[in-house]
Amino acid sequence: MNELLEAVAPFVTGLQETLSGRQGANPQVPDALPEAPSQGPHFPLPEIVGQERGEPFFIRRNESMEASMLNRIRKLERQNSLFLLSKAKGEYWSEVKTTLHNCGSQKEYYRLLCFENRDLQIRERKHSCFFLFQEILSRNRALRGDAANPTEDFMDFFSGKREVLDKNPEWGPVEKDIKEIEFVEQVKLDLAARGHESPYIKQILGLG
């Protein structure tokens, strides 16, 4: 029995030394923790603004006047007016709106808005004049005389009047527009009041 204990003693002693050495050793600690896995690039949220897309943020639109102009243009479109530059329905206002909403300043916006409003007033009055002119000719066919194309004569008559205004160096664009509005209104009222006896009938047809 003693011989057996003496035989295994070296193995027991070696095992104890090994265990003791492991317990006394310092565990290895990594220098830094591993980085968390990347979640991809971070993009800032887009800034939310209250203006319409594409509209300069500093332009304060006169929405009531724009709405009024749109309704007046639609009225001319429903009546198949010749004075919307032969554009398809909706196209005339679309171009006006694009011009207004791309102005570079508030001052430019109001300048163009007033111009477009005056221009539309001229077109409306010409449309009314043309309606009266056609009605008068339909009732008094003899008035046409040798006029081959009364519609063309009508257009040329008012274009000629505008050319006269444009040649006057004393008036600016606004004054010229106002004077044209006044002249077309005068013709309209005279045609409505005097009918075939209006002197403008012969002037338009080149007969007097």
Rank of each mutant, 00 (worst) to 15 (best):
N2R: 12
E3H: 03
E3A: 04
L5R: 06
F11V: 14
V12A: 12
V12M: 11
T13E: 14
G14F: 13
G14K: 14
Q16M: 15
R22W: 15
R22I: 15
Q23H: 11
G24I: 11
A25G: 10
Q28S: 12
P30D: 01
P30Y: 00
P30V: 01
D31S: 14
A32C: 05
L33Q: 03
L33T: 00
P37C: 02
S38A: 09
S38Y: 00
P41F: 09
H42Y: 08
H42R: 09
E47H: 06
E47M: 13
Q51V: 04
Q51G: 07
Q51K: 10
R53A: 13
R53T: 10
G54M: 12
G54A: 05
P56N: 05
P56G: 04
F57R: 15
I59A: 02
I59G: 00
N62G: 01
E63D: 14
E63Q: 14
S64P: 03
S64D: 14
S68D: 11
M69E: 06
L70Q: 05
L70D: 02
K75D: 11
N80G: 05
F83D: 06
F83H: 09
F83G: 04
F83E: 09
S86P: 02
K87W: 06
K87P: 00
A88N: 06
G90A: 03
E91W: 01
Y92L: 00
Y92T: 00
W93H: 00
E95T: 02
K97G: 00
T98N: 08
L100Y: 11
N102A: 01
N102I: 00
C103F: 03
S105T: 08
K107W: 02
K107I: 00
Y109W: 07
C114I: 06
C114S: 08
F115Q: 06
E116R: 07
E116Y: 12
E116M: 08
N117Q: 07
R118M: 05
R118D: 14
R118E: 07
D119A: 07
L120S: 07
Q121I: 09
E124F: 01
R125V: 04
K126D: 08
K126H: 03
C129D: 07
F130R: 09
F130V: 05
F130H: 14
L132E: 15
F133S: 04
Q134N: 10
Q134R: 10
R139F: 04
R139E: 06
N140P: 02
L143V: 10
G145E: 14
N149E: 07
P150S: 09
P150C: 10
P150F: 12
D153W: 13
D153K: 15
D153T: 11
M155G: 05
M155L: 15
M155T: 12
D156R: 15
F157H: 12
F158P: 02
F158I: 13
F158E: 10
S159V: 15
R162I: 05
R162T: 04
N168L: 05
P169S: 08
P169C: 08
E170Y: 13
W171M: 08
W171I: 01
G172H: 03
P173K: 10
D177T: 00
I178Q: 12
I178A: 04
E182Y: 08
V184C: 06
V184G: 03
Q186C: 04
D190C: 09
A193R: 15
A193H: 15
G195M: 07
H196M: 08
S198M: 06
S198V: 12
P199I: 11
Y200K: 07
Q203W: 05
I204C: 05
L205T: 02
G206L: 11
L207W: 04
L207F: 03
G208I: 10
